[in-house]
Design a protein around this nucleic acid. Structure first.
Lengths: 192, 192
DNA sequence: TCGCTACGAGACGGTACAGTACTGTTATGG
DNA sequence: CCATAACAGTACTGTACCGTCTCGTAGCGA
């Protein structure tokens, strides 16, 4: 691959991300990217056909990975790792600014809606896999698998909310409390 | 008050809200309001000095009330009422669309940041009052009052997250499960 | 009824932005 | 070394929008 292309693409993506983080979607204009990055407008349109395509690429490049060290770790440990991973994502300054924009723009923009739903899909699969082990071990009740998305809300909602609202810091402590609280709720209904 | 003024203000606010809900902040333009509402542009600028002032007024008019039937109801009942109220707010189609926009625009726009922080302040006071009763009754541990905002996240986070992500319906059932789970977590730490 | 004020209509300037077109330059890979 | 492709620079068109302005009309309250 031509190193000039790689350089240009990276410079544009970096600048575009900066603009998006600093001033929101309306601040990410082609002219602003040209002015700040030093890349010429003609070059910009050589790599991205429209502004929307660039915006989508920025989100795509910044979206957190949502991976988990896959081993046969027990359910509780896996949940804790997942919650901490989410907390780290939400604590990241870039993604913290980009997430609300993605939520908002997903309603109008199909390309961004795709990115959004892929992340949700990935989160769904991950959580389902962990919960399945939890059901086998009798740590969580079977019904958590009936509506995994609702379980995700009950489990990880506080972390995401904290990140979006900025009312309280998003750290490992909060993540741990989320998991503790979720499991306590599970134990309460399992014992009845 | 001149009924013409009331009529005009209401017509504009209704139209502006529609535009904001349908197409996001960028769709709420003065020209669009003029075209759809039938109100003349000169009249529009008689009531709102700038577009930003109108946007702020729309959010102000649509922001949910966050009130609670104040009586000496027990903590659990009050928490349940609050959670259900939040769920109803997030289930409202208008506010459901406006909330992400408010989160995003609050970062840049001081006027919207004010609206946002006032809502958070109100939520803080309400929750603190309820929790204080819970501490007295021994239903929740004392430390929940140390960082009320974190407690809000742990308590109401799932409801807000569900509303913002649209992954799962926001209903009374979810609200109840939030409260149950929160109290179960409290009981678990209280018993140790 | 009458004066005041809100209103409708729309032209207008200024600006910001998306996207195109063209020219000359520079770096890359063969 | 050289052909090629990527690049910088920039002028340009068209459009959308904000905000101002003027003028004539219509509804309100006293």
């Amino acid at each position: 691959m031509d190193p000039r292309v790689a350089r240009t693409r990276q410079a544009v993506l970096d600048t575009a991300t900066e603009l998006l983080v600093e001033g929101g979607p309306s601040a990410l204009t082609m002219d602003a990217v040209v002015a700040r990055s030093g890349v010429a407008k003609s070059t910009l349109y050589r790599h991205w056909e429209t502004r929307d395509a660039l915006v989508a690429d920025v989100f795509d490049a910044c979206a957190p990975a949502l991976d988990l060290p896959e081993g046969d770790v027990p359910c509780e440990e896996a949940l804790r790792a997942m919650a901490r991973g989410l907390a780290r994502s939400m604590a990241d300054e870039q993604w913290n600014r980009l997430a609300p924009a993605l939520i908002l723009l997903s309603r109008q923009h199909p390309e961004l809606a795709d990115i959004d739903s892929e992340m949700k899909q990935r989160q769904h699969e991950l959580t389902e896999a962990i919960l399945r082990r939890g059901v086998e071990d009798g740590v969580v009740e079977t019904s958590v698998l009936d509506d995994v998305n609702r379980t995700i809300a009950l489990l990880a909602g506080p972390v995401i909310f904290a990140g979006l609202s900025a009312m309280t810091p998003v750290d490992d402590d909060l993540a741990d409390r989320c998991v503790d609280q979720f499991l306590a709720g599970q134990r309460a209904t399992l014992s009845t």
